[in-house]
Design a protein around this nucleic acid. Sequence first.
DNA 1: AGGGCGAGCCAC
DNA 2: AAACGTGGCTCGCCCT
Length: 582
Amino acid sequence: MSGRPTTLVTDPAALASCFETLRNQPVIGLDTETTGLDPFTSRVRLIQFSTPNDLFVIDCFAFEALRDRELADLLEQPRPIKILHNAKFDARMLERHAGARLQGVFDTFLASQLIATGAHGVGHSLRAVADRHLGVTLDKRQQASDWSGALSREQIDYASEDVRILLPLRSKLVERIRELGLVDVAKIEFDCAPVVARMENAGIYIDRDKWEVQCETTERAHALLRDRLVEDFASAVPQMSLFGKAEINLDSPAQVQDALNRLGIPVEGTRASELQHYSKHEIVARLLEYRTVAKQLTSYGRSMLEHIHPVTGRIHPHFIQIGATSGRFSCMDPSVQQIPNAPEYRDCVRAPEGRMLVVADYSQIELRILADWSQDTVLMKAFQSGEDLHRVTASQMFGIPLDDVSKTERSAAKALNFGLMYGMGAQGLAMRIESTVQEAERLVHKYFSAYRGVERWLRDAGEHAIRDRESRTRSGRLVRYEFDESDRSQTAGIARLGKNVPIQGTSADITKLAMVELDRSLHGTDAFIVNTIHDELVVECDESIADATRDSVERAMTWAGRQFISSIPVVVETMVSQAWNK
DNA sequence: AGGGCGAGCCAC
DNA sequence: AAACGTGGCTCGCCCT
């Protein structure tokens, strides 16, 4: 595979000749070895480059390779194409330690995920991907070795092997990407990876003091409700108390159900939706209150503060670029995509002194995708009118003037607008709006009488998913389904996915494209993306450029939306604020 | 002790 | 009988 042995680069002259070789290549492999996983506390030890004939291992401890201008140039130019496995990791390290914005990426990690199309039990480590696509078994034993001391022969060999494999691996993956029609979506994903790296490095600021105050308030409410409930249960169910002390764990659904049943409250399970029906009992109402604060305390309590990084004073969550099979991001440690949408919490997520947040989200993006894709003339018109969508829907469903739409009618229309994209049936709607199934059936019928094109599109999408065992988003992103045809409950589930995945996934396509475009347009300013929540972006910037930044955000997001939605307007709602509030 | 899993609930 | 999509976090509980 490699014509020449590994060149260990330990001085500026060797580095210059290394770049001489690399500059003229169309495609090169790139990998780094670091002393740890955290860009703010770890150092880059090695940078490895591969070409079809050469292999360079640059020892960043031997000389100041990371300060080399040519290195930054090479990384920042779109050519040569840089092949990396999980480019986000290396991009974070290289941005932090070489001050370089990586561009021109082919990511074998993301490529593997796109090709696997959400298949279960398929790993995407470099080892797994090389094994699957090349039949090559990599030895990863040195991966977590100590990269801060003298280099061993094994370490240099390991570093070489990893970067050597990237060129042949890309060739195989490119073939599969072409066969599967994934060229466009791969471009979006690859371009997005360095943007995600920058977003993670930037992190998001949380007001520690404000958050702590919120925690204390919640802790007091929690203790009060807990004591009161334990007492209630103890006096109502004497056999549950031991020496006058109640023996119930309020956080155990099994114990709570048992206790409620003993009190003659016949709950089946203790979900909020179940307890709701019995909220006339004081103890149940109190339990629901307890649940709310308990959730706030555990999921959104002090643990959030433990994520504040000692070096940056900010939170650097982990964004998983293809987190859902639909192509949506997921986020963890902590998940800043699911901080409660209540002022007490969102006020704590803010811009530091002298800076502002631009908060922007797509208006009804999924319904617009559905309208555009189905070409339903009535739904398209509804969007073109610029009126309140749910009200228009109700007016069309019930054949009444806009102004005569009642609150109930609007909320039924709203439930349908959202629910049908998830493949909801009459049963589900009945549950949602607390009506009879017959009434729900009538409403679904009315909805589809108004939106014939939507009905047809959803039906076709469901049937297509079952027949061809796959769905695609507008960018070509592919999701394959494995199921047992003879099992009705399984096919029903696939039909629901067939309706939802193309829409949810196209929304993800749009948001990712918007991030790429926005990152490009913010380059050179001190504004940067700090969060992405499915159809929403949060950007932090100096207050002096807030208005200009808002314009950039709106322009990038609108442009991205138009790439996939052509026949109706794409509307982006933006606001400038000190906190993550709407 | 720690992994796996379900229940329940937060986000869009 | 049920079944409305995608995730992550924390808990209890059961397992090894």
